[in-house]
Amino acid sequence: MPFTTTVITGATSGIGKETAMALAKKDHAVYMLVRDMERGEELRQEIIAVTKNKNVYVLKCDLADMASVRDAAGVLKASLMAVNILINNAGGIFAERHESKDGYEMTFAVNHLSHFLLVNNLLPLLQKGQARIINVSSEAHRMAKPNFNDLQWLKRPYSAWKAYGTAKLFNIYFTRSLAIKYGPKGISAFALHPGLVNTGFGTGLTGIGKTLMWLARPFMISAESGAQTSIYLASAARIDAKSGKYFKNRHVASPSAQATDELGRNRLWDLSMEMIKPFTDQ
Rank of each mutant, 00 (worst) to 15 (best):
I180S: 03
W161L: 11
I180K: 10
Y182I: 01
W214I: 10
T206R: 05
L151A: 02
I180W: 13
K181I: 13
T175Q: 07
A227H: 02
Q127K: 14
L205F: 03
I187G: 01
P184E: 00
S138Q: 02
N171L: 13
L192C: 08
Y232N: 08
I133A: 07
N135I: 02
M143D: 06
E139P: 04
S159I: 02
H141W: 15
P194E: 07
F247P: 00
A227I: 07
A237M: 01
F170C: 15
W153C: 07
V197F: 00
G200Y: 01
M213A: 06
T206C: 03
M220E: 15
S222D: 01
E224F: 05
K155T: 11
L196W: 06
K162S: 07
G244W: 01
L212E: 01
Y182L: 15
L151E: 05
Q127G: 02
Y164H: 14
W161D: 15
R142G: 00
K145C: 01
W214F: 10
F174P: 13
E224Y: 07
L125D: 15
L233R: 06
G186F: 12
K245E: 14
S225L: 01
N198S: 07
G207N: 06
I231H: 04
N171C: 05
A236Q: 09
Y232W: 13
A241F: 11
D240C: 10
P218K: 07
T199W: 00
W214R: 13
P157Y: 02
